[in-house]
């Protein structure tokens, strides 16, 4: 088999083309570059005013000029996101454990958690401002309200994913309730919990920005509202880019953590007899 492959691949070796490096980068990257060029060109051709749509080059210039403020406000938003996300885990996972283990809790709490999701969180944000003021607290509360739901739901599904046979097996070994949880149920639930965490990263960024829209004196959401009122669309775009970057990096960080904690789901290799 190896010999055949060698013979067949030998004549296929080509001289490296000078444009070969293009193929190494994701095709999506090139799509993005083309779209940005089209954007730049169309803005210049149609002479759209800068307070309607700035060209990408202007946005980059703005980002460089405004960089320290963007970083400062980005840091504020990021801290709201991270603190809220952490609280969501601290509330969500234990709640999921309670719901999994207690029939009463499942019937008393679970339906309410599910039903509460029909309440538009953005709509109650002004109310939270009235209760908690304009500081950090209402932002964290909104982030938690948005992001704890997928964590709870996915954790419950994951903790219940252990088959009856698996639990019988644990019993037949004489496992205690604690051992059954720690060695069987929790590892089984981890991939599900991580799916919930990844959803929660996206939602917690949205939560923090929305909370800043409604009442804040710093943060990227605040930068967007203030720039908007002074028709500084370029700065709004700059803030949006930083928010997206925060979201993507946060998601990537959780994904990296998942690959570390749940390695058995990350690399699918299948061997046969």
């Amino acid at each position: 088999m190896a010999a055949i492959t060698d013979v067949e691949t030998e004549p296929r070796v080509r001289r490296p083309s000078p444009l070969r490096f293009l193929g190494r980068v994701s095709p999506a990257f090139w799509t993005l570059i083309i779209l940005l060029i089209l954007w730049e060109l169309s803005v210049h051709i149609t002479q759209v005013p800068i307070y309607i749509l700035p060209p990408p080059t202007a946005i980059v210039k703005e980002m460089i000029a405004y960089w320290p403020r963007l970083m400062y406000n980005g840091g504020i938003t990021l801290s709201e996101v991270l603190i809220g996300f952490l609280f969501s885990i601290l509330v969500g996972v234990p709640l999921a454990i309670l719901i999994t283990y207690s029939r009463v809790a499942e019937r008393a709490i679970y339906p309410i958690i599910v039903a509460s999701q029909t309440i538009p969180k953005v709509a109650i944000a002004p109310l939270l401002m009235a209760w908690f003021g304009y500081g950090l607290t209402p932002k964290i509360v909104i982030v938690v309200l948005l992001s704890f739901f997928p964590i709870v739901i996915n954790s419950v599904v994951g903790l219940k994913a252990s088959s009856a046979e698996m639990l019988y097996l644990a019993q037949s070994m004489g496992a205690s309730g604690w051992q059954t949880f720690w060695k069987f149920r929790l590892p089984q639930a981890l991939p599900y919990i991580f799916a919930g965490l990844k959803l929660a990263t996206v939602l917690s960024v949205i939560g923090a920005v929305v909370a800043e829209f409604i009442g804040a004196d710093q943060g990227l959401g605040y930068v967007i509202t203030v720039s908007g009122s002074s028709f500084n669309i370029t700065r709004q775009f700059a803030a949006i880019i930083v928010i997206s970057a925060i979201g993507m990096l946060f998601f990537a960080a959780i994904e990296a953590l998942e690959r570390f904690v749940v390695p058995w789901k990350a690399n699918p290799i299948v061997a046969s007899e």
């Binding site: 046979e165 698996m166 019988y168 981890l190 058995w264």
Partner: peptide, 16 residues
């Protein structure tokens, strides 16, 4: 009865 050993139709191996 933890003195026995048990095998089910499904292998019930832990994926992790």
């Amino acid at each position: 009865n933890p003195e026995g050993g048990i095998v089910f139709q499904q292998d019930v191996l832990l994926e992790w």
